[in-house]
Simulated scan of single mutants.
Amino acid sequence: MQMSKLDPKFSVVQYLDIDENHHNQRVDNYLLTLLKRVPKSHVYKLCRKGEVRVNKKRVKPDYRLQEGDIIRLAPVKMDEKTVKPIATAGLFMKDQILDSILYQDDFILVINKPSGLAVHGGSGISLGLIESLRQIFPEQRYLELVHRLDRDTSGVVLLAKKRSALTYLHECFRAKKVNKQYWCFVKGTWPNRVTLVDAPLKKNDLQGGERIVVVDEEGKSSQTRFRILKRYERYTWVEASPITGRTHQIRVHCASQGHPIIGDVKYCDEPTNKIAKSVGVKRLFLHAASLRFPHPDTRESMEIKAPLDNKLLQVLNNLPEKTAQNRKP
């Protein structure tokens, strides 16, 4: 067995003190975060074999850690071929990610995520935003995603620097104390009468493993509010405020009205996207523009806004607007 691909400190017995950041966290989740480059199956094997002990006792993977607990972790011995590769691209993207920081303090970090960057690795993606940030800020003992955005969606992403902050913010999301607003550029003339789309959504897996979401009466209840920002000759710039938080919700709700989001390879037709590319839209034109939430420490309401990238701003500025006499009610 070779350990050259692992952090050398895990080649010896480790004694780990649990502080308030990890109070009430499951021990398996704690270890999966700690041993980022070790496969999940191996982490659970360590637990089964008793190589993970809390306060000198064996524990099951679902044990909830308490502040003051001491974890004894036996040496982690892994075959070099089995260890997950280092996400070196995270350091390559360091400047871009640092420039995307919108706000941070001792409790939270807010990023204006670029389009094309997944929020986390997996499903064939070796590197995501969270892995990159952990490499850029190795001194940050705790850093977790509070919510997620699709890979091709840009805009506000909220992360927690303390477990207490993560728990509180998750409660806020569940209690609908968080308000999200998105900007989307859609095909055609969005009608004034459509201010709320209430259409249940269901996930379908297509042949080849691709996932697509459809409007289906057997799906989960889903609602999105819409507001027109500006009309163009072939397009409409609209603001979408999701009431529920389903996968691809805004994208499918737009498409269900006959106004798919430009650049959407799943839900917008190819000829429309081809025309849009000629005017500069070469990505999904969906942007998480703002996020309002209570601060996990002060409980005061915060609103973080993410500017649209220059390429999309240029598209909006250069396209001809729809004149008043040509507008449809």
Rank of each mutant, 00 (worst) to 15 (best):
E321F: 02
V178S: 01
N179V: 13
P294S: 11
K40A: 03
L16F: 05
A160F: 02
N310D: 15
L129M: 09
E217C: 01
I261Q: 13
L117H: 08
A199M: 10
S11A: 15
G188D: 08
S100E: 05
K45C: 00
S256H: 14
R211T: 14
L149Y: 14
G50C: 07
Y168N: 01
V252P: 04
V238Q: 00
V76W: 07
K328Y: 00
N21Y: 07
I136C: 15
P8K: 15
P271I: 08
K176F: 00
G263W: 10
R72Q: 14
I304M: 10
N24A: 09
K161M: 02
L158Q: 00
L98E: 14
D95I: 01
L166N: 01
L117T: 10
S123F: 03
S126L: 10
K274A: 14
L6Q: 13
E270D: 07
A175G: 00
R283G: 01
I228L: 14
G68K: 12
E51Q: 15
D152R: 07
C268H: 11
L158A: 02
R292H: 02
Q66T: 11
I136Q: 13
K161D: 02
Q181Y: 06
P294W: 09
G50L: 11
G68D: 12
N318L: 06
V281E: 02
I275S: 06
Y182V: 06
I275R: 11
F107H: 14
R37F: 08
G280I: 01
A324H: 07
I304A: 10
E239K: 12
H170V: 03
K187R: 12
P296C: 12
Q66K: 15
R151Y: 11
D152Q: 14
A240I: 06
D216A: 04
H170N: 13
L109Q: 09
L145K: 10
Q104A: 08
V279K: 02
G68E: 11
K176E: 05
L166K: 03
V52T: 06
P320E: 11
I212E: 09
R134C: 08
D105V: 08
H22L: 09
M93W: 15
K177W: 00
G122S: 06
L91G: 10
E303W: 07
H147K: 08
K60E: 13
P294L: 13
R163S: 10
P75F: 11
K277C: 11
R231V: 02
D62A: 15
G209L: 10
I71K: 02
D95S: 14
E233L: 13
A165V: 03
P271G: 04
Q140R: 06
L313T: 06
E80Y: 07
T244I: 04
R141W: 01
E239A: 15
P8Y: 11
S132T: 15
K274N: 08
P329V: 14
P138T: 13
D205C: 09
A276M: 11
V197M: 06
T82G: 05
K277Q: 15
E210M: 12
G124L: 02
S132Y: 04
D105E: 09
E217W: 00
I275Y: 07
N21M: 07
K203R: 15
V76R: 06
I212Q: 13
L312C: 11
I261A: 09
V27E: 04
L159T: 04
K277L: 03
E131C: 13
S132I: 12
D28R: 09
Y63L: 08
V52D: 04
I261V: 15
R163Q: 14
Y63M: 07
K5G: 06
